[in-house]
Simulated scan of single mutants.
Amino acid sequence: MRDGNVRPARATTTTGGEAMRKYLAEAIGTFVLVLGGVGTAVLAGERVGFLGVAFAFGLSLLAMVYTVGPISGCHVNPAVTVGLLMAGKFDKRHVAGYVVAQCVGAIVAAGVVLLIARGAPGGYSAGAEGLGSNGYGASSPEGYGGGAAFLTEVALSFLLVLTVLGATDARAPVGFAGVAIGLVLTLIHLVGIPITNTSVNPARSLGPALFAGGDALRQLWMFIIAPLLGAAFASAVYRLVNRPAVQISATRAEQATDEERRERVMGRRDAEHPV
């Protein structure tokens, strides 16, 4: 028997399944970002230097924008999620799920990096060597103090989130958001690595800090507050200077155009069912 009570249940199930796919995509995307970036810093940092680590983070994000972006928008960063929310480009119902997924992905990735690092001759101590964690003062790569570190993280987070907002604007070139976002993250790391090891991402900071403990965990507050503050500033500036006639989500902006996707689907169908 079909009545009005059945259809909403199906809709709820479908919506719940779609939400879980988004959360899983965010966890995977953040896992890859931390594995690629922090993994390079810990396992190959002495060989590739700051430049190599910066590109590792940027290329990891670039790849994930095109891999999980069409599913979740590829925030892979609580600061980006908050910035998109404040700019009216993200549904507040999914904020908690995204942030939890991002943190889980980062923690698992940091754990994997640690397990690999321990396989080196002589082993590896996360507490002693840091596991690529963020810090200031004695924990800064070049000894920068807390004030400089906080300002750096706010400013660089502002730059990242503003780029995400602009690159996913309705009037931005279709299909190029990932290039802009990946390159700006590379630039951000070139500036920030000597100062704080570059966070601009609370989840990225949380993962290594949980394993490193000590100062990394005590100083974690800065790498949560500063990126969120930078995201708030970016959202305010975006709303002030950019008023598009049509507002679209980041997920939608990172997808191909409808025509491009239809062509791909029709081409696949033709290949599967030749005349």
Rank of each mutant, 00 (worst) to 15 (best):
I225F: 07
E259T: 13
V53I: 07
A148Y: 06
I193G: 00
V275H: 02
D215T: 13
M222E: 05
R93G: 04
T198Y: 12
T257W: 04
F90G: 00
A120D: 00
A79L: 02
A212E: 10
A250P: 03
D169H: 09
M222Y: 03
H273T: 05
R218K: 12
L59G: 01
Q255A: 10
G39I: 06
G83D: 02
L59T: 14
A11Q: 05
L43R: 13
A170G: 08
A138K: 06
G123H: 02
F211G: 14
A245K: 05
F57L: 07
S157M: 11
L206C: 04
G36L: 03
G230C: 09
F31K: 05
L160N: 01
N242R: 14
G17D: 15
A232D: 15
G16C: 06
A170F: 07
I248A: 05
A138N: 13
G147V: 04
V82D: 00
V164D: 01
T251I: 15
V100R: 04
N134C: 01
L131K: 14
G88Y: 15
F223M: 02
A250D: 08
A172D: 08
S199Q: 09
I28P: 09
A271V: 00
P173D: 00
G137I: 13
L33G: 04
Q219D: 09
L217N: 08
E129K: 15
N197Q: 11
V161S: 08
A109P: 15
T13G: 01
A27R: 12
A120M: 08
A216T: 10
